[in-house]
Amino acid sequence: MTAENRISLSRHENKLTKSVKMYLRDIKGVIGLFILLVFIVMAIFAPVIAPYSPDTMTDDVLQSPSLNHLFGTDHLGRDLFSRVIFGTRISLSVGFVAAGLSAIIGVFIGSFSGYYGGATDDIISKVIDTFLMIPAFFLILIIVSIFGSNIMYIMLVIGLTTWPRNARLMRAQALSIKEKTFITVARSTGESNMRILFGHVIPNGIFPVIANSALQMGGAILTEASLSFIGLGDPNLTSWGKLIYQGRPYMTYAPWTIVIPGIFVVLAVLAFSFIGDGLQFTFNPKNKGEK
């Protein structure tokens, strides 16, 4: 049994290495991954990296970038570099949690809908189409303005409004996978529908959702930044968008207060779209082996 497990593990690794190699062929994907890794390190080790406490106010108000303050200071004399580093935590968490939630909901609804079919599927597809059509940002804006702008709400609402794209991808996958013989085999050997759904349909169809989730992480970061910029961000937390919001009144004298946090938003969104496209490239069956 253990020997056997070992063999199977090494096989898994082989398959994984292949995919990783495939992914690494795409230069954009590599760059995206690199940026993301840097951000993750920044988020985890923020207290170590940041030279100052992000909230300590000093008299050095609106200092331009210097060796002392890499990114300058804001209107309350707080070190912008430290604030950006700590902001990474908020922005990245919003990306991961919101897109993760969206992926989970999308995978469940999409796979149920596609696998079971019938009238439920008709209705669900219509709902998916409608949600996809209407820009989620407005719905998020309305809901957040009514329910309050706690970061938990924001992540929840982004997740709850962006799942339809994942659901659509997953549904299409489920529709094609359920016609495969191995699903019939599973039914004929007595596997329950739940087991088939979670054991075969989802594992075989989830890759487009994963690739899309990377894109949605960038999208969630943008959405949170926009909300913060309007003034609907979590009042107690400082994300990149919040930094731009805070810097805006002073931007003519201290452009760095808005330009630098913005560059971080752009880099994060860019990284996620590189990664998403890279993943799509990796799992596109057309690219197998060629190039």
Partner: peptide
């Protein structure tokens, strides 16, 4: 195209104001 696509519209607006107005 990637870079401009990744830009928050409000931020680009601010940058343009900084550059062309201020």
């Amino acid at each position: 195209a990637y870079i401009f696509y990744a830009m928050p519209s409000f931020w680009l607006a601010l940058v343009l104001i900084l550059t062309f107005s201020s």
